[in-house]
Nucleic acid binder design. Structure first.
Length: 567
RNA sequence: UGGGGUAUAGCCAAGUGGUAAGGCACCGGUUUCUGGUACCGGCAUUCACAGGUUCGAAUCCUGUUACCCCAGCCA
């Protein structure tokens, strides 16, 4: 199955197509505007996909612009990690990386312009006072006592704010719009605030920094953005976005369009909660394979194509949504089913002795790298007298329809022979020590005579197998909507204690050649990815479970158990 | 309660007056040296609800309900 884009229609592409057909739009320019104050997560991936794929679809361009108007919260490390994540996802922005901070000079000029028009004023109210004056959802606000300052005084004060004469919080520049507007965002929003902070791009040049509302639309206009796509919570800001463009001599008139942000169940994307998980040591950093960050997903073994496909399959609309994480699993499985080479790895070893194989016997079996892809070549599977199979693949007293190994039963060793279990050898405590089996030598690449062996199990030669560390990952939360908990304790009470379990397994020898970030399907088990950082350290082989294979047998067993309980 | 939005299956989602796409999940079956994959079939007589217009309504009109967002000098 292909995981590449088929450009399913959505309300954004429909609208742009219509604009192009009626001549309203000639070309399109979009932008992805992250604030460099944290790591990108799966929700950002959606926004990246929306902006880049729309531009691509209509032969336009997409810019990367850091929305860096708040030096108190931003860091250079994030401007680096964000660029890496975008590139890893497979996107290249048009031109150089841009920063809203590049436009600070222009923005400041425009602030002066507004003041001169009588459309902005310097306010001395404290933050608390401003809140009181703003009114409530149902009551109009009241004008600040400083609202009627003269243009001259405002100009003077603004300049002195900019030169650092006042302390943080002493004054702000506000737009003069309407303190009684039913839209609270229009009740004289703050345009500039004083911050005596070092900025990662502009250093110590500025003492005042523009607010989002004063920077975003103008930055879009400067860059010639045609479609400024953002999430629904900015809808109430659109009148303000347009107000700025109407009252300023901007070079272009971009339009803001909102879409619903994507949520995924069994995970969180709130920055505060993500940070809490890292700081409390619940996960091992921002790129822990359980994190929904792009770097975490990457380390877990998600591929760029699978993430793009996931974005596409979940669509773009305006209704609040919570996507089932099963869709994410589906996206990565379909990519890896096609593109991951196969290997065998025993996670829970049970020794098997092949009694009719000589002590010194050793043979090399050639197996396909992928059952449907000759281009993936072959690998060698050594076979000798002793081997390991997974303990789950043997049952002393099997239920009906158990197609694996059991006393007196036959099973096929994947890519090799059919064997029969002749004897179960036990330890003193009654646990199983090993299985003694006999090989049917006529079954290599051939079906046995006169009977059908339905089961196929994976195995690894005891002498040749290589030890591997396998990290099995699962959802971080046991509840569908962990984001709904506001209280920290309540939130943390829903962590999945089994989100990580590490086991020592035995892999086929070819796994020794695996490079960090190589993907594999461990046959009959799941998809795994050699850890980006730990794999290969001191010769240790470390594999992360990206996602398990679907398990029809487990599902049937579970259903049978439930039916048994009820009946 | 003021303003702004959204309601189509368990979850996403197309559909814009002509008789409910697709995907995920789920349920059957076929194939299979992965209980995987692939393939075949099933899964909304109805689109939040109630009226109305129309030959015909998820789409238009009226009303109602539910849910989401907004009272940072965050974005």
């Amino acid at each position: 199955m292909s995981v590449e884009s088929s450009n399913a229609p959505n309300f954004l592409s429909n609208q742009i197509r219509e604009e192009i057909s009626n001549g309203q739009t000639q070309h399109i320019v979009t932008r992805f505007p992250p604030e460099p104050n944290g790591f990108l997560h799966i929700g950002h991936a959606k926004s990246i996909w929306v902006n880049f794929s729309l531009a691509e679809q209509f032969g336009g361009r997409c810019h990367l612009r850091f929305d860096d108007t708040n030096p108190a919260k931003e860091e250079e490390q994030f401007v680096q990690s964000i660029q890496q994540d975008i590139q890893w996802l497979g996107y290249r922005w048009s031109g150089e990386v841009r920063y809203a901070s590049q436009y600070f000079d222009q923005l400041y000029e425009w602030a002066i312009h507004l003041v001169k028009q009588g459309l902005a004023y310097v306010d001395d109210l404290s933050a608390e006072q401003m809140r009181e004056y703003r009114g409530t959802l149902t009551e109009p606000g009241r004008p600040s006592p400083y609202r009627e300052r003269s243009v001259e005084e405002n100009l003077d004060l603004l300049e002195r704010m900019a030169t650092g004469e006042f302390g943080e919080g002493e004054k702000v520049l506000r737009a003069r719009i309407d303190m009684a507007s039913p839209n609270i965002n229009l009740r004289d929003p703050v345009l500039y605030r004083i911050r005596h902070a070092h900025h990662h791009q502009t250093g110590d040049k500025w003492k005042i920094y523009p607010s989002y509302d004063f920077a975003h639309g103008q930055s879009d206009a400067i860059e010639g953005i045609t479609h400024s796509i953002c999430t629904l919570e900015f809808e109430d800001h659109r009148p303000l976005y347009n107000w700025m463009l109407e009252h300023l001599p901007v070079p272009a008139r971009p339009r803001q369009i909102e879409f619903a942000r994507m949520n995924v169940n069994y995970t969180v994307t709130s920055k505060r909660k993500l940070r809490l998980l890292v700081e409390k040591g619940i996960v091992n950093g921002w790129d822990d394979p359980r994190m929904p960050t792009i770097s975490g997903l990457r380390r877990r073994g998600y591929t760029p194509a699978s993430l793009r496909h996931f974005c596409e399959m979940t669509g773009v609309a305006r209704s609040a949504n919570v996507v089932d994480i099963a869709m994410l699993y589906s996206a990565i499985r379909s990519d890896l089913e096609e593109n991951a080479p196969r290997a065998m790895c025993v996670l829970n070893p049970l020794k098997v002795v092949l009694t009719n194989v000589a002590e010194d016997h050793e043979e090399q079996i050639e197996a396909a790298g992928h059952p449907a892809r000759e281009d993936m070549g072959t690998r060698i599977l050594p076979l000798a007298r002793e081997l390991y199979i997974d303990a789950d693949d043997f049952m002393e007293e099997p239920p009906k329809k158990f197609f694996r190994l059991a006393p007196g039963k036959e099973v096929r060793l994947r890519n090799a022979y059919v064997i029969k279990c002749d004897e179960v050898v036990k330890n003193d405590d009654g646990s199983i020590k090993e299985l003694r089996c006999s090989v049917d030598f006529d079954t290599l690449g051939a079906n046995p005579e006169g009977r059908k062996v339905k089961g196929v199990i994976h195995w690894v030669s005891a002498e040749h197998g290589v030890p591997v560390e396998v990290r099995n990952y699962d959802n971080l939360f046991t509840v569908e909507a962990p984001d709904k908990f506001k209280d920290e304790q309540e939130f943390l009470a829903n962590l999945n204690p089994e989100s990580l379990s590490v086991t020592e397994g035995i892999g086929e020898p070819s796994l020794r050649d695996a490079q960090p970030e190589d993907h594999f399907q461990f046959e009959r088990v799941g998809y795994f990815c050699a850890d980006r950082f730990d794999h290969g350290d001191n010769g240790k082989l470390v594999f992360n479970r990206t996602v398990s294979l679907k398990d029809g047998w487990a599902k049937a067993q579970k259903k049978a158990a439930q039916a048994g309980q009820q009946g």
